[in-house]
Amino acid sequence: MEPSEFAVQVRDLVYRVGGRTILDGLTFNVGRNSCLGVMGMSGTGKSTLLKNIMGLLRPTSGDVLINGQSIVGLSEQEMAPIRRKMGMCFQYAALFDSMTVAENVAFGLRRHQRLPEDEIRRRVSESLGRVGMEGTEALYPAELSGGMRKRVGIARALILEPELMLYDEPSAGLDPITAARLDGLIASLDRERGMTSIIVTHEVEELFALCDMVMMIHEGKIVALDTPQALRETSDPLVRQFVEGRADGPITV
């Protein structure tokens, strides 16, 4: 098959659950080595979108293609080689709570690569170092704060050097210094390793600094999909209200 120019293609994605339509016909592409930012009101379906792209949820209708290959309806075993090139940072970290930080981070390496134990240890501490979590190898997730867990989750996903990373609010709950450092890491991974990323975040400035394209979802639909520059200057009242963070406007909570 011709390798696709897009890392991710989403076509008319509809996701319905419990009689509610969460995602209502999303269509967009994410180019290779680019960064898409996703923003939208809380509860609008951003995490649900990432889980559909990761194949963790099955779309009600529509299609999701990773590197040009449709993943809808693939079995877990068929999905595994595709997911090995993908990484996901969960909104609530989703660390394995019966394993130490080191075991969490080493999980993908141990399962998918045969490496000597000291090489694993080296890569684990390197990966933890990148997110500013060095020296926490022996701790259990219960002994970490929310922001620390989040960063271990990112280290766990990054250790396999995925081509495509999905970040679900990577800097939520982090102090501004750590958040800025994390943004630097994401930017450098995108630049130096040619990683493609999709970032869900409420931090509008982070979005505009990191992303090539920004998408806004509202009530299950894409209301804006453009470059950060264009969104900054848009006259769309919906986007303006969100970007400026005002309580009054077309969106009422």
Partner: peptide, 20 residues
């Protein structure tokens, strides 16, 4: 508990079949 805390999804995201 693993299901409720998304650890099953995390396994799958790390290309690991939870049945296996």
């Amino acid at each position: 508990t693993m299901k409720a805390t998304e650890q099953i999804d995390a396994l799958r995201a790390l290309a690991t079949d939870p049945i296996e």
